[in-house]
């Protein structure tokens, strides 16, 4: 038996909007730790890792570990039927082939049940090693979204370089080139507006902008985004999900031919 009650149901709606264009089908895993997902895009270039910790739910019952295969497009269709202020409860029976989403309006005058068919998904679970990153950049998520959008009108690859001068986002295309440099700025009124650059070693890596743009669908979840870079590893683009967890996107770099 599984029953997860999330008072801030809009978080789950936003989570789905953040991953449904990257991944078609995925297994949601439920354990005493929380509600989680790990999935790759169909090209196996990007990986998304979601965790919503059990403590973040008002009620969290998961009698035994359960993996539920869902089509994210269909799940998104159902969650779009929930109001932004609704409380969302996810319910499933052990061994069952459906999951139920229950939406309660804040005043309890409307209660809706949506039952969705589960599917068998044979997915590979990858071990993600803990890593020390060469450089970590924290910046406003809206600024990162703007940069990715702007650069993708010029080119299809972004080079992200971190030096002691700051972080540089560069691209090149048929019509020309673009460089955007951000310097560390912590003298801001609101902490979420800060640009914090932690550089242990300079690093420069190339990534497909198409994926970066897809990751920025998570912008409504968090005011800030953290970008962790190491020359030997996929970049990690992380958005916190309120106080209860995170969405981390891993993107394999483009390498020299």
């Amino acid at each position: 038996m599984l029953e997860l009650r999330l008072v801030q149901g809009s978080l789950l709606k936003k989570v789905l909007e953040s991953i449904k264009d990257l991944v078609n089908d995925a297994n949601f895993d439920c354990s005493s730790t929380g509600f989680s997902l790990q999935a790759m895009d169909s090209s196996h270039v990007a990986l998304v890792s979601l965790l919503l910790r059990s403590e973040g739910f008002e009620h969290y019952r998961c009698d035994r570990n359960l993996s539920m295969g869902m089509n994210l497009g269909n799940m998104s269709k159902m969650l779009k039927c929930a109001g932004n202020d609704d409380i969302i409860t996810i319910k499933a029976d052990d061994g069952g082939d459906t999951v139920t989403f229950m939406f309660e309006s804040p005043t309890q005058d409307k209660i809706a049940d949506f039952e969705m068919k589960l599917m068998d998904i044979d997915s590979e679970h990858l071990g993600i090693p803990d890593a020390e990153y060469h450089s970590i950049v924290r910046m406003p998520s809206s600024e990162f979204q703007r940069i990715c959008k702007d650069l993708s009108t010029i080119g299809d690859t972004v080079v992200i370089s971190v030096t002691k001068e700051g972080v540089k986002f560069s691209t090149a295309g048929d019509i020309g080139t673009a460089n955007i440099v951000l310097r560390q700025n912590t003298t801001v009124d609101k902490p979420e507006d800060a640009i914090v650059i932690e550089m242990n070693e300079p690093v420069s890596l190339s990534f497909a902008l198409r994926y970066m743009n897809s990751f920025t669908k998570a912008t409504p979840l968090s005011d800030t985004v953290t970008i962790s870079l190491s020359s030997e590893l996929p970049v990690v683009v992380e958005y916190k999900v309120a106080e209860m967890g995170y969405i981390r996107y891993y993107l394999a770099p483009k390498i020299e031919e």
């Binding site: 790759m40 090209s43 196996h44 270039v45 990007a46 990986l47 590979e124 679970h125 990858l126 071990g127 993600i128 090693p129 080119g155 299809d156 690859t157 090149a172 190339s206 497909a208 030997e232 590893l233 996929p234 891993y250 394999a252 770099p253 483009k254 390498i255 020299e256 031919e257």
Partner: peptide, 14 residues
Amino acid sequence: MGLQSRISEYFNGD
């Protein structure tokens, strides 16, 4: 501009 690498080149299956 470079060859696209894959996630499995960096992370192993459990």
